[in-house]
């Protein structure tokens, strides 16, 4: 390469300056600062007192924390075991050869993702209204049940309402990734399997699954990480509360309430670290498990 570039101060540093400044100040430094703040008690941003491990002790013995963790885990489980299979199923339906309507259906099914989670929450809060809401009326029309269900004030129905709303919002988003992966499945291999007498199920298991596995792992991990950070959707659905009996309280709502409603940033930082460690651990386990399946 141009000798002058390597001898002198590389112009690369000029182009990287904004990135280094912003990421250093607002990404890497706050991670460390959060680690420090987790050992402080604060009311607001300024009054600070060192309290050792007390934040962690408080959080880990707080029943509300476990309530939030439980809700978040249930939500994550439904994201992975309900929403992703549906996304994959829709992607497989769309992936027919030579179908000109593919783009049209893809756009429709994907479209809810364009609506921000706050807007979705506001919409669905009205859709879930007992007696008048569209969802209740539709259920009544289809099954004869459900007109009077009070989704957002009956603790038993709060999580299902959040899960249904998230399903509407994200099923098409994940479908896009599966569809991109399915389009890369080798048609030759598929034909060869068909010639060898493999049925649809066997073709799915032995040709499709191995081919889309990298993308599937990526989607599962992204979906898990996203589920652990669920906030806006239930926040808007339940108008800023955890819902009746905290049935819709998520871990991030728990953090938000402590850090910005009660004003204890230290406690918020401690919850943030616990959440980050949980996300990191689960992602690592998922990557390990997905690699363990390889032959």
């Amino acid at each position: 390469m141009n000798g002058a570039l390597t001898r002198h101060f590389s112009p690369a540093w000029f182009f990287l300056l904004p990135t280094i400044a912003v990421m250093g100040t607002f990404l890497f430094y706050p991670v460390i600062l959060a680690g420090v703040m987790a050992f402080q008690q604060s009311s607001g941003a300024l009054a600070v007192e060192w309290i050792g491990w007390e934040n962690f002790q408080f959080v880990l013995s707080d029943p509300l924390f476990y309530r939030a963790a439980r809700n978040t885990l249930i939500f994550a489980a439904f994201s992975i075991f309900l929403q992703l299979p549906l996304s994959l199923g829709l992607a497989m339906l769309l992936n027919a050869k030579g179908d000109r309507t593919k783009g049209f259906f893809r756009l429709i099914i994907f479209s809810p993702f364009l609506v921000g989670p706050i807007f979705v929450g506001i919409l669905f809060a009205v859709l879930f209204t007992p007696r008048f809401g569209m969802i209740n009326r539709f259920l009544q029309y289809l099954t004869g049940w459900g007109l009077e269900v009070n989704w957002l004030s009956n603790p038993a129905f709060v999580l299902p309402a959040i899960i249904l709303t998230a399903l509407w919002m994200y099923v098409g988003f994940n479908m896009i990734y599966f569809l991109a992966a399915l389009q890369s499945v080798s048609q030759d291999l598929m034909d060869a399997a068909r010639v060898d007498g493999a049925g649809p199920w066997q073709r799915f298991l032995h040709v499709t699954v191995p081919a889309i596995k990298p993308v599937a792992v990526f989607v599962v991990i992204m979906s898990t990480i996203g589920s652990f950070q669920l906030f806006e959707l239930p926040f808007a659905l339940l108008q800023g509360t955890g819902g009746p009996d905290n049935a819709g309280l998520t871990l991030v709502m728990y953090l938000y309430n402590h850090a910005f409603v009660s004003g204890d940033l230290g406690l918020g930082a401690a919850v943030g670290w616990i959440l980050a460690m949980a996300i990191f651990t689960i992602s690592m386990v998922q990557i390990k498990v997905s690699k363990g399946g390889d032959h």
């Binding site: 607002f26 706050p30 959060a34 703040m37 950070q229 850090a259 940033l265 918020g268 943030g272 959440l275």
Partner: peptide, 19 residues
């Protein structure tokens, strides 16, 4: 840095923004 969950940054960045 993509591994850092944004929510972890909220409390420390809040303190920085105030400062």
């Amino acid at each position: 840095s993509m591994m850092i969950p944004p929510i972890l940054l909220l409390a420390p960045v809040y303190r920085m923004v105030v400062n």
